[in-house]
Simulated scan of single mutants.
Amino acid sequence: MHIVEKEPFDPKKHPAIAQADQSIRAFGIEFQSRYGVLSELRALINAVETWLPRGLFWHIGAICFDSKGGSVLVSLKERDGDLTDLARQIATVLKRHLGDRCSGVFVEDCREQIIADGRGA
C-alpha cells in the first residue's frame, strides 16, 4: 500500500484560492487580499457594506487583508483635518465584524502613519 503524504496548505499554490486578481474595487474602495483569497475579499466587502456607515467608508481609499499576518490594513484618503476619531471608529467596527478572521485592524493616514489600532476592539 502506497501512502501519499499531504503537503501543508499553501494559499499561494492552492488552485481554488489563488486568483489572478488580488483586488476588487467597490464603493470607491480598493479591496485587496495578499493572496487573492476570495473569502477574505467577500468578508471585507460585506463588513464595509453591512456595518460601516457611509460617512465613514467615504474616507477609505483601500483595505488590505494580510492573509499571512492575519491583519487588516485600512488606508485613508487624503483629507483636511484630524482623522484620528474617524480612524478609531473604522478600526473598532471592522475589528468587531472581522474579529474571528483577523487578529487586528490598523488604520493609516495618507502619510502611511498608523493612527488607529483595532486589536483590542
Rank of each mutant, 00 (worst) to 15 (best):
M1C: 08
M1W: 06
H2W: 05
I3T: 13
V4F: 04
V4C: 02
E5A: 12
E7N: 05
F9C: 10
D10R: 12
K12C: 09
H14L: 01
A18K: 15
D21I: 05
S23G: 12
S23F: 03
I24C: 08
R25P: 03
G28I: 11
R34I: 08
G36A: 05
V37D: 07
V37F: 02
L38S: 09
S39H: 11
V48Q: 00
E49C: 03
E49S: 09
E49L: 02
T50I: 12
W51R: 08
W51D: 12
L52Y: 01
L52T: 00
P53F: 02
G55C: 13
G55Y: 04
F57G: 00
F57M: 01
W58D: 13
W58E: 14
H59D: 11
A62E: 15
F65Q: 03
G69P: 07
G69Y: 06
G70L: 11
V72T: 02
V72N: 00
K77Y: 12
K77P: 07
E78W: 08
G81C: 07
T84M: 12
T84H: 08
L86I: 09
A87E: 15
A87S: 15
A87W: 14
Q89I: 05
I90K: 06
V93Q: 00
V93A: 01
L94Y: 00
K95R: 13
K95A: 03
H97A: 04
L98D: 04
L98V: 04
D100P: 10
R101T: 03
S103H: 08
S103Y: 08
G104W: 02
V107Q: 11
D109G: 07
C110A: 12
R111E: 05
E112D: 09
I114M: 11
I114D: 02
A116R: 05
G118C: 13
G120L: 14
